[in-house]
Write a protein that binds this DNA or RNA. Sequence first.
DNA 1: TTATTCTACAACCATATGGTTGCAGTTCAC
DNA 2: GTGAACTGCAACCATATGGTTGTAGAATAA
Lengths: 141, 141
Amino acid sequence: MVAVHSGVPTRSPSGSGQLQLGDAEVDRLFRALADATRRDILVQTCNGDLSVSALARRYPMSLTAVQKHVAVLESAGLVRRDRRGRESIVKTRPDTLATARAVLDALEVQWRDRLERFGEALAPEQQDADQPAADQQGAQP
Amino acid sequence: MVAVHSGVPTRSPSGSGQLQLGDAEVDRLFRALADATRRDILVQTCNGDLSVSALARRYPMSLTAVQKHVAVLESAGLVRRDRRGRESIVKTRPDTLATARAVLDALEVQWRDRLERFGEALAPEQQDADQPAADQQGAQP
DNA sequence: TTATTCTACAACCATATGGTTGCAGTTCAC
DNA sequence: GTGAACTGCAACCATATGGTTGTAGAATAA
């Protein structure tokens, strides 16, 4: 379970592997990454020298569309915007990308762990009715 | 310059770029991962001993909803379904999860590469201490 | 055989997403 | 000061998503 629904998506400082991201944060993170334009924006803005409109000139879409993409990345914590005069400078936050990798690592750890526990012995799958699950849904509306 | 977007991704083979995923595939991959239920399904089905309906009993939603989640995971290549009699057994494909990690790695490589080429002209970045990762929600209303 | 289980799929609904245009407010250049 | 550039936001549209119910067919159990 990756979900503790903490307010702050803090990575574990020492590489123990357990991170404390809420489901909603992880959802936003992967959803932000699930768009080619946004992934490209991440690469383009690593220097932190591009404003939103300078960014927008690089893509065949309107400024507003790029603004929305940046907003999605920002709400996922993948970029930050700093106001510089009349323009807002977009800059990637590499630490959050590392967080995404850590989530994938955690996923792999989880099923590797599961494989070890249930591995070969594998009792008949009465796990189905036994565990009504629902611990991962958290605070769904 | 930088005629990105609009075509094949063709990441620059700088360094260790070695995967050949199209934008659409990567989109599907991350989108499939951007849902807590689907991430949990990935963990639940690592043993390959759960049918779709057995899986559905673990979540507070209809069988059809779980079917759709499995379909999303399958189209992303994250799970496989094997027909066993009247039931279809869902099993995760760890290699595709590793592919997702490789995509993130490639992203990091890309901007690290970019930083190397363009970097150092900017001021050193100590701004992470300036604004910690707490402001995930974007602009507060 | 019959009844149950499991899957597949269609139809529907509410909301989210990704795009557009238009307008208003700042900040800068001249 | 005037105008241009940059941003922010609202309204709108088309489509995708995530959920529901209902129906139908195939495989298994009794």
